[in-house]
Nucleic acid binder design. Structure first.
Lengths: 234, 234
DNA sequence: TAGGATTTGTGCGTATGTATT
DNA sequence: TAATACATACGCACAAATCCT
C-alpha cells in the first residue's frame, strides 16, 4: 500500500508494522496476548526504540494496548462494538467503486484467477488460517480498484480492525468446520460475482456486490456469536 | 474526542498531540516549517522521547514529515491532491446523519446558539484565524451527532487533513477579505440550515445540508486556487 | 502489608544522514 | 571534494508502575 520508502529505517518500520499487524489478525497473537518489547527487538535484530514506534502505531489503530508496568497487550474484540465498524465498512465498500475507479489491468485479472484457484482448493481442504490469508489478499486487491488514496487507507485500517473477529468466533465452535465451509462457499460466490462485475467493466457493480456480501456475512457472524453467547448461559 | 485517559502519561500525550495538530491547522506552523524536537521538549517540560511519539503520530496522519538528518517538516498541501480527501469527506458527511444518529441534548443546542453568535460577530469583524477556529469547533460539535465512533475518528482525521488549505489559499490573496466575507456568509447559512434540520429532528437532513455546503465550499475553493495559479503565470 | 520481579515510560549520549560552505 | 554544523534515529540505563508472593 505504501510507496517505495525513502530510507532503510522507514522500510524496516513498515516491514515490522505489517508483520505484527498480520500476526495479530491471523491470531498468531490472540487477544490478550502480551508482547514484550525486548523479545520483538531481539527477533527483528534491533533495539526497543524502533519496536516501540511500531507498537505505538498499532496502539493508535486499536490493535494493541500498552499499560505502564504491565505490558503491551493485544486488544480483545467484541462483536457488538465492531458492528459499528462493519456498518461503516459496508458504506465504504460501495464507495470503492464510485470514487476514482481504476479499470483493472491484466496483471490484476491474473491475480484474481489465482485467488479463485486458491479458493477452490480451500473449499476442499478447509483451512481457517489459509482462508483468512486469502480473504486478506483479496481485500487488498479490491482496494486497487480505486485511486482515492484516503479511501484506500481508511478501508484497509477498518478491515484490519474487524477481520480477526471471524477467526476468533469460529475457533470457539465445535462445529467450526461447518461454519468455515459455509464461509468459504459464500466467499467463493463473492469472488465470482466480483469477477463478473469486473468483466462487465462496471466497477460500481463491484461495490454493490461487496456491500451485499459484507452485509450477509456480518449478519451471519452476528447470529453465530449470539447463539454462542446463549449457549454459554446454558 | 477521547475518553478520560488512563494515565498521566497518556493524558499528556493526547494534550501535546491536540496542541500541535491545532497549531498546524491554524497555520501557526505553516507548511514547510521545521519543528525541532528539542524546542518542543523544552516547551512542554519533558524530554525528546514523548515528543517523538507525538510527532510520529502526526507523521502517520500526513501532517508532518520527518527526514533523518534534516528535520521534522510540516507537510505542504496541494488542492488537487486534497480533492480526493474532499470527495470522501462529502460522502462521510452524509453518513454522520445515517449511522447511529444521536438526538442533540440541550447543552449541544446551547453550544450551537453560542457558535451562531460568534459567527454573527465574525461577519462584521472578519478574522480569518477566528473563522478557522469556529469552523473547527462547529465540526467537532457535528461529530457528536453520531455515536458511530470509527466514523467520528475518521471524519475528524480527514477534517484535519484538509482544513488548512482554506487558510493557506486565502492568505495568498490580495482580496482575501472578500473571500473571507463570502466564506463566513456561506458558513452562516450552513449553520442556520443545520440548526433548522436539527430542530425538525431530522438528522439525515443535517447530513444532506452539510454535504451540499461542503460541495459548494470545495468547488469555490478549487476555482479560487486555479485562478490563483493562472495569475502566477501572468 | 511489604518487597522483589518484571515491564513499559523517560532521558540522554551517540550514530547516522543531510545540507551548506 | 572535504569539512563542518545540525537534526533525526538509535541504543541503553534508569525511573515508575504493576503484579505476585
Amino acid at each position: 500500500m505504501t510507496d517505495i520508502p525513502a530510507s532503510d529505517a522507514r522500510a524496516r518500520y513498515e516491514r515490522i508494522y505489517a508483520t505484527l499487524r498480520k500476526r495479530i489478525c491471523l491470531l498468531d497473537y490472540p487477544p490478550g496476548r502480551r508482547l514484550r518489547e525486548e523479545d520483538l527487538a531481539e527477533e527483528f535484530h534491533t533495539s526497543r526504540t524502533p519496536i516501540r514506534r511500531v507498537l505505538a502505531r498499532l496502539e493508535d489503530e486499536g490493535l494493541l494496548w500498552s499499560v505502564h508496568g504491565v505490558g503491551t497487550i493485544v486488544t480483545d474484540i467484541d462483536i457488538e462494538e465492531l458492528s459499528q465498524v462493519y456498518r461503516l465498512r459496508i458504506e465504504l465498500a460501495e464507495l470503492i467503486g464510485k470514487l476514482m475507479p481504476v479499470p483493472p489491468d491484466q496483471a490484476m485479472l491474473n491475480e484474481l484467477f489465482e485467488m479463485e484457484a486458491r479458493c477452490a482448493e480451500l473449499a476442499s481442504r478447509l483451512d481457517a488460517r489459509e482462508f483468512a490469508r486469502l480473504n486478506m489478499d483479496f481485500f487488498q486487491l479490491i482496494l486497487r480498484l480505486t485511486a482515492n488514496e484516503p479511501l484506500r487507507d481508511i478501508s484497509e485500517r477498518l478491515y484490519f480492525q474487524t477481520t480477526r473477529i471471524w477467526l476468533k468466533t469460529a475457533s470457539r465452535f465445535d462445529h467450526y468446520r461447518d461454519m468455515l465451509r459455509l464461509e468459504v462457499e459464500s466467499f467463493q460466490r463473492e469472488m465470482r460475482d466480483v469477477m463478473l462485475a469486473i468483466e462487465s467493466a462496471d466497477l460500481s457493480a463491484v461495490g454493490h456486490v461487496r456491500r451485499a456480501h459484507l452485509t450477509t456475512s456480518f449478519s451471519r457472524l452476528l447470529a453465530e456469536a449470539r447463539s454462542d453467547k446463549k449457549a454459554d448461559i446454558n
